[in-house]
Every structure is written in C-alpha cells, then in structure tokens.
Amino acid sequence: MTIGINQFFNTAASQLSSLSAQADAINNQISTGKKISAPSQDVVAYNRLAQIKQANADNTTYGSNISLAKSLLQQSDTTLTAVTTQLQRAAELTTQAANGTLSDANRKTIAIELQSIRDDLVNLAGTTDARGQPLFGAATGTTAVTQAADGSVSFGGTGEVPAIPVGDGTDIRATDSAQRVFGGLPNGSGGTTDIFAVLSTYISALNAGGTATATAASGTAATAIQAALNQASDVQGSVGARAARLDIVSTQASDAANARDVDRSALEDTDVSTAIISLQKTISILQATQASLTKLGQLSLFDYLR
C-alpha cells in the first residue's frame, strides 16, 4: 500500500505541475497576444514565422528602394519636360534665323537667346537629386557634365547607373545618363555629337554674320535639334514606362505583405476569447485536483484499514 500511495502522490504532483505550467503558458499568451514564443512550442510554425519576419525585413528594404526610384523617376520626368521645352524653343529660333530677310543684328539677337537656352540645358543636365547626386549621372564620374573655361561642355562619366533592386529578382533603372539624354546625336559625318556642341557651333555661325552662312547653319542645327527632341521624348517615354512598372511592383509588394500578415496572425496571434475559456477550464481542473489531493492527504492510515 505504501508504494501505491507514493505513486498516487507522485502522479498527482506531476499533474499539478503540468496544469500549473499550462495555466502559466495560456496566461502568457493572453498577456502578450502571442501563441508562440519559443521553437519548442511549435517548430514548424516557429520556422515559418522566422521566414515571414525575414521576408518583411526584405520588403522594408525594397520599400525604401521603391520610394527612392519613384522620386528619381518623377524628378527625371519633370526635368525632361523642361529640357523638351528648351529644345522646342531652340527649334523655333532656328526656323526664324533661317529667314533670309533677317539682318545680322537680328541673328545676333537670336544667338543671345540660343546661348541662354544652351546655358539652361547645361544647368538641367547638372540637376542633382534629393541625395545630392547628379540626376543624370553615369556609372563612372562624379558629375553629369562639366563645363570648361572656354564654355565647352563634356560628359562627366560613361555608362548607365545600375538599376535599383525593388523586389526579389526585380530591379528598375531609375535614372538615365546625360550622355543618353543629351548626346549621341548624328553629326552628318557618320559620327555623333551632343546638343551643347550643336548649339555652340550654331551660335558662332549666327554671330559670324552672312545670310548664306546662317541659312546653311540653320538647316544643320534644325536637323540636330529635332534629333535631340526625339531623343529626349524617347527617354521621357521610357521613364514613364518604368514608373508604371514600378507602380505594379509596389502594389504586388503591398499585396504580398498583407498576405504574409494574415499567415503570421494565424500562426502567432492569440485568440483571446478562446484562450480565456481554456485558461478558466485549466484553472478549474487545477483547483479541483488540488482540492482532491488535499482531501486525500488528510486521510489517516486507519481510514484505509477500515
């Protein structure tokens, strides 16, 4: 009988300990709002939660990149609109200067405005973004364009800036180099030039005087300026397409984040109502077990021998 009594009390003590631990665990779930706090509670769920946490961290980084890319694309679009406006005015002035009835003084006046347009284009090419970096910077170099003491303009680097990662396996080039926007224009000799050189050469021709010279120079300049307009328009169209794609990526990232949060909540969040009922049930069993054990413990050996 001694062995039986010892086994009984050992079993009861184990049950009390287990019930107390269950009550503490449920109470902790209610207070923290989390069902899982350690791998031992549910290895599969804990690992899945770790994956979700990592995915959310990656999404935060991608979200910052998306915001940056959107900002750069918007600034590029605005700046390219200003570039197009300047080029359109240059094209109008070229048509005016080709008029054979103009005097040299008239053409010099046109040259002055063209010089202002050229300066504005140089300034637009050197636009900096919110980070203080050149908006039209290249893969190499620290400036988009540089202007020498004699007024000549050259590109500060070569190559396109690497695309920005905005999702798993997805990246978007948020900016274009100054070379792509302002350079690469055919020069009529099989080579290429840039709009700054085109305008400089044309301005010099207008200042030199002479109807024949001005007319010939106007024709050459008009062709190059139209090519520059077409190129700026193409780049701006590409910017718009990339911005539209970025909106899609952003929406997809948001939808994926919402889906992950649903999964996380199902795995991790405590159903408080259900947990309270479970806690009350566990406490009731615990109290009943304690009461039974106390009552049995008060029995004497003579009670067993009756």
Rank of each mutant, 00 (worst) to 15 (best):
S284L: 10
A244Y: 04
L279P: 07
V262M: 00
T251Y: 00
S300A: 10
T251I: 11
T294F: 04
G240T: 11
D247S: 14
T251W: 09
A257H: 05
V239R: 04
A243F: 05
T274L: 11
V249P: 13
A275L: 11
A241S: 03
L293P: 07
L299S: 08
G237C: 04
V272N: 01
S284P: 08
T294C: 02
R264A: 09
K295E: 10
S292C: 06
L296V: 09
E268F: 04
E268C: 00
V249T: 14
L293I: 08
D263G: 03
L301M: 06
V249W: 12
L299D: 04
S254V: 10
S250K: 09
V235S: 02
D247N: 14
A275Y: 12
A275W: 12
L301E: 06
V239N: 02
L246Q: 02
F302H: 01
N258T: 11
A275C: 12
A259W: 05
I283S: 13
D271E: 04
S278Q: 12
D234A: 09
L299E: 02
V262P: 01
T251C: 01
V235E: 00
R242P: 07
D234T: 06
V272Q: 06
L279W: 10
F302M: 04
Q298A: 05
T274E: 14
D234F: 01
T294N: 12
I277C: 03
D263I: 06
Q280T: 09
R245F: 11
K295M: 07
S278F: 05
T251D: 12
L301R: 03
D271L: 06
I283T: 13
A241I: 07
T274P: 14
L301I: 10
D263L: 07
S238V: 10
Y304R: 13
A257L: 07
D271V: 07
Q280C: 07
L279R: 12
L299R: 08
A244R: 13
T282A: 15
A243N: 02
G237D: 13
E268T: 10
D303H: 13
Q290I: 14
G297D: 10
I276C: 02
